[in-house]
Structures are given as C-alpha cells and as structure tokens.
Design a protein around this nucleic acid. Structure first.
Lengths: 136, 136
DNA sequence: TATTACCCTATAGATTTAATAGGAATTACA
DNA sequence: TGTAATTCCTATTAAATCTATAGGGTAATA
C-alpha cells in the first residue's frame, strides 16, 4: 500500500506545480484544496523542503513553492524521499542494500529473483515519469 | 515492503516445488530448511492450501505438497493471496477497486495516474513469472 | 511591533504485521 | 485398539509502523 504521506506529498507537489506562478502558497490552502489534515501536511511539506523540492517563505504572505522545474522532478526521488526504498526487500535495493539474515545465499533465493524483476519494472516507471508528466 | 508472510510463503512454495516427488513434506522440515518460525509458517501453508496451491495430509507421514504444476502457478495469484492487492492504491485495483474518499475526480488525480502505471508494470512482471521460472 | 505562517519535537491513537499458545481432529502403524 | 505424529483452527499477544494531533518556538514581513 502507498502511504498517505506519499499520497499527500504527491498531491501537494502537483498542486504547487499547477500554480500559474511560483508565489508561496500557504499550508492551509493546500490542505483545504486537497482534503488533507493540515498538521500532517505540514510535516510532509517540511520533508519536501529539506530534500530540495520546495522552498518556503515565512511571515505574512508566506508559504511553500516549488523550486525545481516539474520536468526535473523524477518520481524516483519523490518516492525515495516520501515512501522510502523502491525495492520491496532490502536485498535488492540499490540505495538501501541490506543482506537478509534468514537467507544464506541470495544467488539461489527465489524471492530475490522475483523482487529484482519487480524493482526493475518499478524503477523503469519512476525514472521515466516526471512531475510534469503527471500534470500534463 | 514485502511482508514476511509473502516472503515465507514464496520460499515454502519454492521448497515444495523443488522436491523430486510430490510426497508430503512436514511443516517442521520446511520451517527448519528455510529458517522460518514454525507456527507462523503453519498459518501461511494453511492459507496456501485453502487457496488451491497446496494439498495436505494429516497424521503420521503427513505434510504439505504442491498440487499444481509449477508452470501453472502465476505470481499474480500468489501475490494476491499472500500480499493482497497488487495495486498500491484501491482506486487503481482491478480486483479490489475502491473509490478514494478524499479524491473528487480520479480522472485528474496524479496519484491515480502514476499508480496506474506502476500497477501495469507490476502486473506485467507477475503475469509473466511462474513458480517454474523462479526455480529454474 | 503585531501578526502571520513556517519550524520542530513529542506523543497518542489506530492499524497492521508477526509471532505464540493451546488444544482439536485426523491418520498411520504397531 | 491405543498411541504417537501431524495437520487444523481460533484466539491472543507483542511489536512495529502509520497517521494524526498537540503545543509551543522562531523567523520574517507588513
């Protein structure tokens, strides 16, 4: 299952990318428009800012805004930041590799074999999809 | 993340498919060979039996055995039984469709759009992979 | 200088997952 | 016919994760 965090994060990115200009949008407005708990969204936007997707402005007239072009935002990076590793098991993860402690030999593990295929298929999708593709 | 239930279930299926004959294998032996908690495995094998993958025999000399040919076991059905829906959100699920309550229009939802691609990519993998492919 | 709005941590509640416990039912075999 | 072996089944607990909330702190701006 996709976590709500990722779901909301994607919706927020979409919303901000769809703004005609790049003026700051208040958390409250994003939350309202996308039906998201404001406090929860707050922490998600913070994560997105810390990871270089969003900029923010404090004080009156402040809010969040996109700082990268939608064409430059790959779903691989969005998913990794919001959802975590793309691989379904650590032993096939590119960025978060870990050996399984119950599995003596990855080379003959059928779970490994299957999940490797799944990972590649998902990577293919995420790499070839940008935020721009989604809002177009 | 792939649940341990699915992971263990796949390993068990693999193990049973690799037996030279289709004689019953005891839970205890599968558990030992694959490093799985026996009681947990017990419930997983039960699920696999109820869903038509395995047969069982009680009493002395009993155990579980594969009742379908490995070539005839698609990963789509295995995953649906063990892991649940293949889609990451209900609104793109073929077998478990459900409308999102926070989303007014699926047609313009970017999460829907992305997850549709992901679902298709995963289905492609699962449909084209049988148990036989994994143990070969 | 008051206000607005982001920043940050902690925590509680809900849900799911993983594992365990204990016994009932069935079978093989001596 | 009795006994040991093995699956069958339900309920429960323990652990982990996810979702959401609380409550105030801090910085920037009009």
């Amino acid at each position: 299952m996709l976590s709500k965090k990722t779901k909301y994060g994607l919706k927020a990115l979409t919303f901000l990318a769809s703004q005609p200009d790049r003026e700051p949008v208040q958390i409250a407005e994003v939350a309202k428009q996308e039906n998201i708990s404001q406090k929860f969204l707050e922490s998600i936007l913070l994560t997105l800012r810390r990871n270089g997707f969003l900029g923010s402005k404090k004080g009156k007239g402040g809010g969040y805004y996109l700082i990268k072009e939608p064409e430059a935002i790959q779903m691989t990076s969005v998913m990794r930041v919001l959802e975590g590793p793309i691989a379904m098991v650590p032993c096939v993860s590119l960025n978060f590799y870990e050996k399984c402690d119950d599995c003596p030999d990855e080379g003959i593990c059928t779970v490994n074999k299957l999940m490797l295929k799944v990972r590649d298929a998902n990577l293919e999708v995420y790499r070839n999809t940008t935020l721009q593709d989604l809002i177009a």
